[in-house]
Amino acid sequence: MELTVELVKAFVANGEGGNPAGVVLDADKLSYSQRLTIAQTIGFPETAFVSRDTEADFKVSFFTITEEVDFCGHATLAAFSVMHQKGILPAGIYKQNTKAGLLEVQVNSDGMVILTQKPPEELGTYKAEDICDLIGLSRHLLEETNLPIKAISTGLADLIVAVPSGQLDSIRPNHSAIIEFCQEHSLIGLHVFELCSHGQGLSARCRNFAPLVGIPEESATGSSSGALAYYLTKHVAPSDGFLFEQGRAMKCTSHIHAYVTRHQESVAKIAVGGMAKHVGRQHVVVQAT
């Protein structure tokens, strides 16, 4: 059986950079093993599989090269952008059914896709001495930020780690240690950031490491960006919107917008958005089941 996989770069910055994702439309009849085989053949961080659904407009599943994950921001952006560009979806608000729940996706007429995430959930606080060896920075450098190290989920559980300005490019991730740590604490990966000055036009620069699910480093991570927006609103300064840069260390700079809706003193809604670029398609042959 031959299938067409759309190849997309999500969260592009001025049409460049972005994080690659595969998108398979009309995936209703594909089994788990077929989806995993397709994701492994494409070899991108994630591939999204879009199916019909009775509860939402679409059911979407997400596969890395090693396994299915509950949610993926950049692959959601890729999937809905492709459907908009193909004329399947006009601008509007849609719902996708994922393993992380029923989530809203807004498609704008200019191609911007904004995806609502699960309400943020704090999963624990960690000490700098437990994290420093994972990223190759000293405990004192991590403590210098005076910001907590917290596990937060808006669909996937990530560890949010602040480093002093100018230190992000100095990170030397220990992938085997990160895998062991994430397995022990039920995390997907580490999302490390440095704050930017107001004149730079960015809220923060980020790097994301998720070797546990086959991603040594990722150039744009939607789910982690939502968690970071919540973290910054709570621990740095409340804001309705953030702009994050990711992927510079990979020479694949990406821009992720994040939006926070607050009600009184609490966060009511988290969303991330960006632009995507269709870069081609690949035909994949899978064995029938």
Rank of each mutant, 00 (worst) to 15 (best):
G43S: 08
F44M: 10
F44K: 08
P45A: 09
P45H: 08
E46T: 12
E46N: 05
E46D: 06
T47E: 05
A48T: 02
A48N: 03
A48V: 02
F49K: 05
F49N: 03
F49M: 02
R52H: 09
T54D: 11
T54P: 00
E55D: 08
E55N: 09
E55M: 12
A56Q: 03
A56K: 04
A56H: 04
D57Q: 09
D57H: 15
D57R: 13
F58S: 01
F58W: 14
F58H: 09
K59S: 11
K59T: 05
V60E: 01
V60Y: 10
S61T: 09
F62R: 01
F62H: 04
F63C: 00
F63P: 00
T64P: 00
T64V: 05
T64C: 02
T64N: 07
T64F: 10
I65R: 13
I65H: 01
I65L: 02
T66E: 08
T66G: 00
E67H: 14
E68D: 04
E68M: 12
V69I: 15
D70P: 08
D70R: 15
D70Y: 15
D70W: 14
F71L: 15
F71I: 14
F71S: 02
C72H: 09
C72L: 09
C72G: 03
C72R: 09
C72M: 06
G73R: 06
G73L: 07
A75K: 11
A75M: 10
A75P: 03
A75F: 11
L77R: 05
L77V: 15
L77C: 07
L77Q: 10
A78N: 05
A78F: 12
A79N: 08
F80L: 15
F80I: 07
F80Q: 00
S81T: 13
S81M: 02
S81K: 08
S81N: 14
V82S: 10
V82I: 14
